[in-house]
Write a protein that binds this DNA or RNA. Structure first.
Lengths: 127, 127
DNA sequence: TTAATATTAGTAACTATTACTGATTTCGGA
DNA sequence: TCCGAAATCAGTAATAGTTACTAATATTAA
């Protein structure tokens, strides 16, 4: 994979924040440094970086995909009202991949644990 | 919620199969019984049924959403190559929702555990 | 410096899903 | 049984999110 300024800038952006931006949010943010970058470039590089394991792609089922530059093992909470993605520090005790692999024909490479409910703010606002 | 032939037919279809069809697959299948049903009706009723808790909506991040008429607690494997969704009988020992709720401001209503990797068939075909 | 190749910006196209509209169906009450 | 309000429908248009295409540019190894 050849170096590109745009890809580096996208990765830097994701690694320097702890929210979970959508492609569009990354685009808006990166545009402040690379004003001519195109949305397609952002999408393409987010895919490349996620395939590479340098970032995480989070598909919530609510609106667009989100991305995460923090790749240490952790899980996510997704608010069914507003769609916000929040880091959860809880991690299961068991070796989930190992246990699930028993009696399974195929290779399990990873898992994703997502929690759903209402976030603090939506509770307060009675959404 | 008022009764409708179309909704009953969609629910019956999902409950009588153990794969994880997309909206389009449900549409094709239900059309054999209700030839004039429209795709929009299928989408609308799948949403209603999922909001009701009568079926599950599975967002895999690979292509369209899938749906599941089997709502007893279970988890899913998703093949990164072909996108197929497969039931996993493995269920974590811990009370995951309870544990994750500690130190979390907000209400966790449910969780979804998805496994990713390569399915038996894609391994065989070297995909 | 050159040449091969990856990457880009800009735009068009595509896929999945939702919204709209006027006609039809459901269903509780007369 | 019939009526009327409200939900639902089929058909279609519109939208959101994402991917594909193309000619120009950037990167990199020789």
């Amino acid at each position: 994979m050849k170096y590109s300024r745009q890809r580096e800038c996208i990765l830097n952006n994701l690694q320097s924040r702890r929210d979970h931006p959508t492609a569009d949010m990354v685009y808006e943010s990166v545009r402040e440094i690379q004003p001519n970058i195109s949305l397609g470039t952002v999408y393409r590089n987010l895919s490349l970086l996620a395939d590479n394991g340098q970032i995480l792609k989070i598909s919530t089922g609510i609106g667009p995909d989100h991305f995460d530059g923090f790749i240490e093992p952790h899980n996510h909470f997704i608010c069914k009202e507003c769609g916000i993605v929040i880091d959860m520090d809880f991690i299961p005790n068991e070796n989930i991949v190992k246990k699930a692999s028993e009696n399974f024909e195929g290779i399990i490479e990873s898992y994703e644990l997502q929690f759903f409910g209402k976030c603090k703010d939506c509770l307060k606002n009675n959404n």
